[in-house]
Amino acid sequence: MSEVVLAAAGLTKHFPVRRRARDLLAGRRRSVHAVDDVDLELRRGRVTAMVGESGSGKSTVARLLAQLYGRTAGTVRLHGKPMTVRSGRRFRAYCGRVQLVFQDPFASLNPAHTVRYHLTRALRLHGRAGSAAAELLERVQLAPPERFLDKFPHELSGGQRQRVAIARALAAGPEVLLADEPVSMLDVSIRLGVLNLLRDLKDRLNLAILYITHDIASARYFADEVLVMYAGRVVEGGDGETVTQHAAHPYTRLLIASAPDPDTIAGRPAAAPAEPAGGEPPSLIDPPAGCRFHPRCPHVMSVCRERVPPRLDVGDRAGHWAACWLYRGDT
Rank of each mutant, 00 (worst) to 15 (best):
P273H: 09
L198C: 14
G80K: 06
D39F: 07
H14R: 12
R233C: 09
G57P: 15
V226N: 09
G237E: 12
G173L: 00
P16V: 00
R63T: 11
A231L: 06
R128L: 02
F293I: 00
A169H: 04
D316Y: 12
A133K: 01
R199K: 13
R19S: 14
G130I: 00
L201G: 11
S157D: 08
D23F: 04
V164A: 01
A272M: 07
M50I: 13
D316M: 12
L205N: 06
G173H: 04
G279D: 13
V140T: 03
M301I: 00
P282L: 12
L68M: 14
G96C: 08
F148R: 00
R199E: 13
M1P: 08
V140F: 06
Y69N: 13
T72Y: 13
A122P: 06
V303T: 01
A289Y: 05
D316A: 15
L42N: 07
F152D: 06
V61Y: 11
P295H: 10
Y327P: 05
V61R: 07
L201I: 10
M50A: 10
F148D: 05
G238A: 10
Y251P: 04
R89P: 14
P82Y: 05
E135M: 00
R20Q: 14
R292T: 03
R86W: 09
P298T: 01
P82R: 10
V164S: 04
K58P: 10
E181R: 04
W325C: 00
G27F: 13
P287T: 04
A133C: 05
D187P: 11
R292S: 10
L68A: 12
S283G: 15
R163V: 02
S283I: 10
Y94K: 04
W321C: 01
L136H: 09
G319V: 03
G159P: 15
P310Q: 02
G52N: 10
L198Y: 11
T264R: 15
E181I: 04
E3F: 00
A169Q: 03
R204T: 12
R90V: 00
D286E: 15
L207T: 03
G315S: 13
R29C: 07
I256L: 15
R292F: 09
P105R: 01
P309W: 03
S59H: 08
T264H: 09
